[in-house]
Deep mutational scan, measured.
Amino acid sequence: TYVQALFDFDPQEDGELGFRRGDFIHVMDNSDPNWWKGACHGQTGMFPRNYVTPVN
């Protein structure tokens, strides 16, 4: 499953995934309602669910 970033996200903690608005992120785990795990630009980490939108 892929999502697209609605906003820039700069990691604040180790293990978070940084990205820029418009980036596509491969979702690896969406079991938590607020923080998902994904991959983008060769990196993996957690990111806030409300920063992304589903891609059809």
Rank of each mutant, 00 (worst) to 15 (best):
Y2P: 04
Y2T: 12
Q4W: 06
Q4H: 05
L6S: 07
L6V: 10
F7S: 11
D8I: 03
D8L: 03
F9M: 07
F9I: 04
F9H: 15
F9V: 06
F9Q: 06
D10L: 05
D10A: 11
P11Y: 02
P11A: 12
P11W: 02
Q12L: 09
Q12P: 06
E13P: 04
E13D: 09
D14N: 06
D14S: 13
D14E: 13
G15M: 06
G15A: 08
E16K: 15
E16Q: 14
L17W: 04
F19G: 02
F19W: 00
R20T: 10
R20Q: 13
R20C: 11
R21H: 14
G22Y: 05
D23P: 00
F24T: 15
F24R: 12
F24P: 03
I25M: 01
H26S: 12
H26W: 11
M28R: 08
D29N: 07
D29V: 03
N30V: 10
N30R: 13
S31A: 13
D32R: 07
P33F: 15
P33I: 08
N34D: 14
N34K: 14
N34A: 13
W35M: 14
W35N: 06
W36V: 09
K37E: 14
K37A: 07
K37F: 08
K37D: 02
G38L: 00
G38T: 00
G38E: 00
G38I: 01
A39H: 14
A39F: 11
C40G: 03
C40L: 12
C40P: 01
C40K: 05
H41Q: 11
H41R: 11
H41M: 09
G42W: 01
G42C: 05
G42H: 04
Q43M: 15
Q43N: 12
Q43K: 14
T44F: 08
G45W: 00
M46F: 10
M46D: 05
F47M: 01
F47K: 01
F47P: 00
F47L: 03
P48V: 01
P48L: 07
P48N: 08
R49W: 04
R49D: 00
N50P: 07
N50D: 07
Y51L: 15
V52A: 06
V52N: 02
P54V: 09
P54D: 13
P54E: 08
V55T: 15
V55A: 11
